[in-house]
Each structure stands twice: as C-alpha cells, then as structure tokens.
Deep mutational scan, measured.
Amino acid sequence: MTEYKLVVVGAGGVGKSALTIQLIQNHFVDEYDPTIEDSYRKQVVIDGETCLLDILDTAGQEEYSAMRDQYMRTGEGFLCVFAINNTKSFEDIHHYREQIKRVKDSEDVPMVLVGNKCDLPSRTVDTKQAQDLARSYGIPFIETSAKTRQGVDDAFYTLVREIRKHKEKMSKDGKKKKKKSKTKCVIM
C-alpha cells in the first residue's frame, strides 16, 4: 500500500485542523484551538488504489514558523489553505509557496490551493482571484467548507493525484537520464 505524506499549511484560523478532522473523523470542530502540530493517518481508496494518507496539520501562528522547514522537508505534497473571508490569509499563500519551493529546492512541488469556509456569506476573496492565482502557479484550486464537508475529500484526493503525477514524471525523467548515460565512448 502506497503511503502519501501530505502537509496542510496556511495562516492561523483558516480551518486547516477543521478540514483535516472532517476528512479523518467526519465531524466539524467549530471551536478554535490553535494547533502546534498534529499528525493523522487514514486509509482510503483513490482511483481504485488503496493508500495510506499521513497528514500533518501544522501551526499557522507566526511564533511556530521555525518548525516549518522541518515538516516541509518531509512532506510530499501540500494543501495551501486560505479562508475566503480573510484576504490576508490569501496573500500569505505566496509566502508559504515560496518557502516550500526553497526548502524542497524545487520549482515543481505537488500543491493544491484550497479556499476554505465557502459556506460563509462574508467572502472577501473572489473565486476568480483564487483561480487566477492557482493557474499562475500551475496547481489545482478547490473551494471547501469544513463545516458542510463540501470539497473536503476532493481537496485531499486531488493532492494525492498531483503527487502521483509528480512521481510518474520524475521516474520518466530518471529513465531518460539513465538511457543517456548508457551511451559509451570508444577510443581507438
């Protein structure tokens, strides 16, 4: 069974824990209790493949930012979460993405942009803004509501699919490099 290491990042209060708990335990946590770091595991079937999701729910508070490099190193894919009623959390996505790329030393890291709290009427981040940002990053965008469960499975499952595509691409690139290195030079 394939294991996928997913990391949920975003500013404090955007609903990272609520999304994760909704996926794992099928219930909505409405009281806000700032996370330092929590880890969850769940076995699911995605596109006919049974897999184990190892999900790291991270601290959004700035005082825990020193811990970010460590979990970013171990993560295979990242859910970059903002709240649709919090423009600052949307603007912060850029910083999370840049930090992930720096730590992973790669421009090509599996990510999904997630606009959470889409059940709320007080939207300050337009869907088109988020779609445009995701398009500019070359990553999928999904709106979710941890409260109603809308888009929750889709967000995590899409990230797994992005990781699969990335692994497939990397193995193809690896095979191309191996083929090239088999060419021999004969000096007579």
Rank of each mutant, 00 (worst) to 15 (best):
N26R: 05
A18V: 03
I24F: 11
V44H: 10
S17H: 07
H27Y: 08
N26H: 07
G15E: 01
I55N: 07
F28Q: 03
D47E: 06
V9L: 15
I21V: 14
G12L: 04
K16P: 00
G13A: 07
R41N: 09
P34T: 03
G48R: 05
D30P: 13
G60L: 02
I24H: 13
Y40W: 06
I55C: 11
V8K: 00
I36T: 13
A18R: 06
T58C: 14
L53A: 05
T20H: 10
G15I: 00
E63F: 01
C51V: 12
K16L: 02
I46C: 11
K16Y: 00
Y40K: 13
Q61C: 08
G15H: 01
L52T: 15
L52F: 12
D38A: 08
D38F: 05
L56K: 14
D57T: 12
L6G: 00
C51D: 06
V45S: 12
V44P: 08
K42I: 06
D30C: 08
F28Y: 09
A18Q: 04
S17E: 07
E49H: 04
V29F: 11
I21C: 15
E3F: 03
D33W: 04
A18F: 03
G12K: 02
V14I: 12
E37Y: 01
A18I: 02
V9I: 09
G15D: 01
D38V: 05
V29P: 07
I21F: 13
F28M: 11
G60A: 07
C51F: 13
K16G: 07
G48T: 05
I55D: 13
A11S: 05
Q22N: 14
G48C: 01
I36Q: 14
E63R: 05
L56N: 14
T50V: 06
F28H: 09
V44W: 02
G48D: 06
H27P: 05
K5V: 00
A18C: 08
T2E: 15
P34Q: 14
Q61G: 11
I36H: 12
Q22C: 02
V29W: 08
K42H: 06
L53D: 01
E49M: 02
K5G: 02
D30Q: 14
Y64C: 13
D57M: 14
E37N: 15
R41W: 03
A11Q: 07
T50K: 14
P34D: 06
V45A: 12
I55T: 12
D57L: 11
E49N: 05
K42Q: 08
D47Q: 03
I46H: 05
Q43H: 09
P34K: 02
I21G: 15
E62D: 13
V8D: 00
T50P: 11
S17F: 02
V45Y: 10
D33S: 10
A11I: 15
F28D: 10
T58K: 04
I55H: 06
F28P: 07
V14T: 07
R41D: 10
Q25R: 08
Y32G: 13
G12D: 08
V8E: 00
E63M: 03
E3K: 13
Q43R: 10
L52A: 13
D30A: 11
A59M: 07
L6W: 00
H27N: 12
Y64S: 15
G60P: 14
I46W: 02
S39L: 04
V44M: 06
Y32S: 11
E31N: 11
R41Y: 06
K16F: 00
K16H: 00
A11P: 09
E62Q: 06
T20P: 15
I46D: 11
T35N: 05
T58S: 11
G10A: 02
L23S: 15
I24N: 15
D33K: 07
L52P: 13
T50D: 09
G12E: 09
E37L: 04
E63K: 05
Y32T: 12
D33L: 09
V14P: 04
V8N: 00
S17Y: 04
L53F: 09
Y40F: 10
H27W: 07
V45F: 14
K5D: 04
L52H: 15
V29A: 13
K42V: 05
G12W: 01
C51E: 08
L52K: 13
A11G: 03
G13K: 03
Y64V: 12
Q25T: 03
V45L: 10
G12M: 03
V44D: 14
R41M: 08
I36F: 06
Y64P: 15
Q61A: 12
G15S: 00
A11D: 05
I21P: 15
E49Q: 09
T58M: 05
D57H: 12
D30W: 06
K5L: 01
E31W: 04
D57R: 03
V29K: 10
T2M: 03
L23H: 15
S39T: 08
S39W: 03
L53C: 04
D54V: 02
D57N: 08
K42A: 08
E37D: 13
V14W: 00
Y64I: 12
S17D: 12
L23W: 12
L6M: 06
E3G: 15
T20M: 07
E3I: 05
E62I: 09
T50E: 07
D33H: 06
G10V: 00
T58Y: 06
E31M: 03
S39E: 11
L53S: 04
L19K: 04
Q61P: 12
Q61F: 05
G12R: 05
E62Y: 06
V8Q: 00
T2P: 07
C51K: 04
P34W: 02
T20W: 07
D38G: 13
E3M: 03
I21E: 15
G10T: 01
V7Y: 03
I24D: 15
L56H: 15
D33A: 09
L52G: 14
N26V: 02
K16E: 02
V9D: 02
R41F: 03
Q25S: 07
P34N: 10
G15P: 00
V45Q: 01
T50R: 09
V9M: 07
L6C: 02
I36K: 15
E37T: 05
A11E: 04
C51A: 04
L19P: 00
I21T: 15
S39G: 10
F28L: 11
V45W: 04
S39P: 08
H27Q: 12
A59E: 10
G48P: 05
D54G: 03
Q22E: 12
Y64A: 15
E62F: 04
E3T: 11
E31D: 11
C51P: 06
T58E: 10
L56R: 15
D47P: 05
V44F: 08
D47H: 04
E31F: 09
K42M: 06
E62H: 10
I36C: 09
K16I: 03
E63G: 11
E31T: 05
D47Y: 02
E49S: 05
Q43G: 07
D54N: 09
V29M: 13
I21H: 15
V29T: 10
R41E: 07
N26G: 10
G12A: 09
Q43Y: 04
K16S: 06
A18H: 05
T20Q: 09
A59P: 12
I36L: 11
T20S: 13
V7D: 00
V45T: 11
A11H: 04
Y64D: 15
G10W: 00
I24Q: 13
A59N: 14
L56P: 11
V8W: 02
E37R: 08
L6R: 01
V7S: 02
N26Y: 06
L53R: 01
E62L: 05
G10M: 00
Y4L: 06
I46T: 02
T20A: 14
L23V: 07
G60F: 02
G10N: 02
E37A: 08
D47C: 01
G12Q: 03
P34M: 12
E63L: 01
Y32H: 14
S17N: 13
V9F: 05
I55G: 12
E62P: 11
H27C: 13
L53H: 09
L19G: 05
D54P: 04
L56V: 15
I24T: 14
T35W: 13
L19R: 00
E37V: 11
H27I: 07
E62M: 12
A59G: 14
T20C: 07
A59Y: 08
T20L: 13
N26F: 01
Q61L: 07
T2H: 14
L19C: 07
L6S: 00
T35E: 07
G48H: 06
N26C: 04
Y32P: 09
Y40T: 15
G15N: 00
T35K: 13
Q25M: 02
D54F: 01
T20I: 04
G13T: 07
S17C: 02
L19Q: 07
G10D: 00
P34G: 05
T2R: 13
V14Q: 06
G15Y: 00
D38W: 03
V9H: 01
I36G: 13
G10S: 00
Y32I: 12
L53N: 02
D54W: 01
G60T: 08
A59Q: 14
C51M: 04
G60K: 11
L56F: 09
V9S: 01
K5Y: 00
V45D: 09
T50F: 05
I36Y: 05
G12T: 04
